[in-house]
Simulated scan of single mutants.
Amino acid sequence: MTSSANASAFPTLAELPGRPCPIAASLEVVGERWALLVVRELWMGSRQFGEIVRGTGAPRDRIAARLKVLERAGVVSRVQYQEAPPRFDYHLTESGRALIPVLESLLAWGREYAVPDDPDLHLSDAKHADRENR
């Protein structure tokens, strides 16, 4: 987090419990399970709240909370596309797009160690199957 507005929303390294380091600081922002799945959904092209909820499988209140934290941290931005009722699209910021290599690494690790029996499953396949099931 490079901006002082974003930095003030989260603990400083000195305020973190245990060994203060950038990994611990990063996990304050994206360490909760649904946070990286929200980033994944935005990376895959989901933009609206309902799409993000469907793609993650998380409860709506959890996704709403994660989106607020990610927006406050400067990882996502929201853009209003309808006034009544207010509706928003969500987008990855530069900071959010910088997490894509992290997701790609988790994807590779997951294929190798978490689901080695299904190495042919690709994110684009999962997204295509999800859209067909809607």
Rank of each mutant, 00 (worst) to 15 (best):
R62A: 07
A84W: 12
I100G: 02
Y81K: 10
P119E: 00
D125N: 08
A25W: 05
W34D: 04
M44T: 15
G45R: 14
S46D: 14
F10W: 06
A14C: 00
V69T: 15
G18I: 15
E51M: 14
V53C: 00
A5K: 08
D61M: 12
E71P: 03
R97G: 00
L27E: 06
A73Q: 03
V76L: 04
R60I: 09
L37H: 06
G74K: 00
S46H: 13
G55V: 00
E83V: 10
E51L: 04
E132A: 15
A9E: 01
D130G: 12
E112W: 01
L123A: 14
P119D: 01
V29A: 01
W34E: 02
A84Y: 09
R78T: 04
P101V: 05
P101S: 10
E28G: 01
K127D: 14
E32Y: 15
E28T: 05
T2M: 08
R131K: 13
V115D: 11
W109H: 15
G110N: 05
S4Q: 13
G45T: 07
Y81H: 15
R19W: 11
G50R: 07
A5C: 11
L16T: 07
Y113G: 05
Y90A: 08
A7E: 10
A9R: 07
P22I: 01
E15Y: 09
F49V: 03
A65S: 14
P11K: 14
G74P: 02
L92M: 13
R87S: 11
P22T: 02
A64L: 15
S124C: 05
R40E: 06
G110A: 06
A98Q: 10
A84H: 15
V75N: 00
Q80P: 08
A24T: 15
R47C: 08
D89Q: 11
L107M: 11
L42S: 10
S8H: 11
R66L: 06
E41P: 03
A14D: 12
T56I: 01
A7L: 14
A126K: 05
R97W: 12
A114T: 10
L121I: 13
Q82W: 00
A5N: 15
F49R: 09
S124W: 09
W109A: 15
L92T: 09
D130N: 07
A73I: 03
L123E: 11
L99V: 07
G74H: 02
A58Y: 09
V30K: 02
L103Y: 09
L27F: 05
P86L: 05
R62D: 04
R19G: 00
P101W: 00
R47I: 03
A126Q: 11
P17A: 00
S95P: 03
A9Q: 09
